[in-house]
Amino acid sequence: MPSIPHVKNDLVDLAGWPELDEVDVVAVLPSYAKARAVVWGSVALGTGLVVAGPLTAIAVWGDSAPPWQLWVMLGGVWALVMGLWGLEEWKGWPLRGYLVREHDVVYRSGWWSRTVVAVPFSRIQHSEIQQGPLGRWLGYCTLKLYTAGAAGANLEIPGLSMATARNIRRLLEDGSHD
């Protein structure tokens, strides 16, 4: 038996540890949904043009029209990929959200594969508020919280209003000094 006496000091009252209730998750800004829709739409349009453009060109200026099977095949793949992505975005949107508790931040995302990451305040090394062109246009920003762990242990909360991001950051600064 290892005779280390200081073990007793940091027992936790196991009955009273705080449980995370995901019902409390706060949804991110609707403008961020708009941004995701814009990204989805422009990618769909872009890839659609890339697929349909050359085929149309061949059909119009070429010697013979491309077989209709080719249209169906390429179109089907395009529709399937974009459809699945769209489904993920559509169904995933209501699930996307964050939760700030007294001692930690939680972020939940994903419909098909759902991930919930919890990062305690005391482990956050530095934070970053980022706002790209889309974010400036639609009025949202991304809060990035970095820990000392590898990439998987960093937290990125997109779709916050500037005020919320600043508030979380302030909370962080206060929390890390106690």
């Binding site: 594969s113 759902r114 919930v116 919890a118 305690p120 482990r123 762990g149 998987g152």
Partner: peptide, 13 residues
């Protein structure tokens, strides 16, 4: 666990 940086819970549909 006292040295953890983050905890991640994942599940698909």
């Amino acid at each position: 666990w006292t040295k953890l940086q983050a905890v991640e819970l994942t599940q698909n549909r």
